[in-house]
Computed example of a mutant assay.
Amino acid sequence: MFLRDKLDLDAPLITAWSTSPSPEIAGALAACPFDAVTVDMQHGSHDESSAFASMRLIHARGKPGLLRIPVGRNDLASRALDMGFEAVIAPMINTVADAQDFADSMKYPPVGSRSWGPMRALELHSDQTPGSYFKSANRETLAIAMIETREAHAALDTILSVEGIDGVFVGPSDLSISWSNGEGVDPGRPDMQDALADIAKRAREAGKFAAIFAVDPASTPLYSKMGYRLTALNTDPGVINAGAALMLEAARG
């Protein structure tokens, strides 16, 4: 099932977050009961080689793969789709122009100007033909714009109105920096929670979806209640550390 189909079921989804440049770790995350795996090239250590190799192992485990590109790397966005990723998360989409440029790279004409060449994607999705892939790609490959500044929040409705933008992704740590005018990093800021709920509400009203990064896994139910349909759960080192802590606690009594 494609990530788009899972989102259309309107049940809360959780994605793992791969930062270590190891396809094996990404594949191991995909073998866990996460709904998807996101490979991070912005703040993670992945390069193109490790990211694309990770996508193959994620797919082998039957999970959708998402890629977060570095800021402004729209050329990499369309390449990620060619390699089989089902969604791309673009950071620092602050204006409608940013959103339009990103969407343009993600969608085939007449919506955008993505060029043809999804040979690796067709290898992974072997049930599709070139013709069926072309017809379905604009729906099934998702362009997700990050909302992480006051400027982006102010432009949210116009960003959501861009044809080809399928959803938004909130980075609460970066948003807290902007929200506090640079006072510090606090994704749980009490004065920001109404804004977080408002983003999810406005995305749904626009017929699109909202996703968010859960720095604290315990905040995931709250985000789901706000209307977020996809939550990113910590990072791969965080998962490893948490698992090790549980096993060591049991081992040491």
Rank of each mutant, 00 (worst) to 15 (best):
S50G: 03
F85Q: 01
M226A: 10
I25T: 02
S180L: 02
R252V: 11
P64G: 02
G84H: 04
S50I: 01
A121K: 08
V37M: 09
P91I: 01
P33D: 15
N181E: 13
V215L: 13
P187S: 06
P21A: 11
R73T: 08
F102R: 03
R120F: 04
K225P: 02
M247N: 14
A218L: 15
L124C: 04
L230F: 01
M1V: 14
A99S: 06
G188M: 09
F85W: 00
D5L: 05
A214M: 05
R252G: 03
D8M: 12
V215G: 12
P190N: 13
G171C: 08
E249D: 14
N181L: 12
V162C: 10
P70A: 13
S105D: 10
I69G: 10
G131E: 04
L222V: 06
L142A: 02
R189W: 00
R150I: 15
H46T: 01
P237K: 05
F169Q: 08
M83F: 13
Q128F: 09
P91V: 05
V37H: 12
S105G: 05
E123M: 15
S136F: 05
E48C: 07
A218M: 12
I199V: 09
D157M: 05
S132V: 09
D236Y: 12
P109S: 07
L124D: 01
A244P: 01
P12W: 02
V96Y: 07
E163C: 02
V71Y: 04
R56V: 15
A16P: 05
D101I: 15
G117T: 06
A200V: 05
L175Y: 13
G44L: 10
G27Y: 09
R61D: 05
L233D: 11
F34L: 01
G238S: 02
G227F: 08
Y223L: 03
F213D: 09
Y223W: 06
A28E: 11
A206P: 03
R204C: 07
G238N: 03
A60F: 00
R4H: 14
S105Q: 07
K225F: 08
S78F: 06
S113I: 04
A11G: 09
S20L: 15
G112R: 07
L67T: 03
E48K: 11
Q42E: 14
P64Y: 03
I212H: 06
A145L: 04
L7H: 01
K63S: 03
S54Y: 01
D40G: 03
A30Q: 01
S20A: 12
G167K: 04
F52E: 03
A11M: 12
L66M: 09
